[in-house]
Amino acid sequence: MSEQDYKYIENPLHITRREFITITGIITAFLALPSIWIRSVATANNDYIKARTKNLYQDDVQSKIRVSHANKSVARYYKEFGGKPLSRLSEELLHTKYINRTKALS
């Protein structure tokens, strides 16, 4: 491009200050609004987990009895049927054995 072989160029300064501010503002908003939106949805990521956790603890607080050994129905089960924890019947019905699945099974 040693020799200019054109006579005309575009006037490079054809925007007024007001237009400039307006356009820059529009572009900023165009980029900022989605960023704000994505940030807000990302921070709410675990809200549903926290809500479920909180309300399950609330169910605990509401309960009249809060320890397992005070559950009268469990006591009745052991009295009428199961005997006591780790009894023979408990071992049979409430306990299990695990299998090594690293060996081929079926």
Partner: peptide
């Protein structure tokens, strides 16, 4: 009687419960 439960039983659903 199978519907009676303690607060300790219900928190099984949470981690650490």
């Amino acid at each position: 009687l199978f519907a009676e439960y303690s607060g300790a039983g219900t928190i099984f659903g949470n981690t650490g419960g």
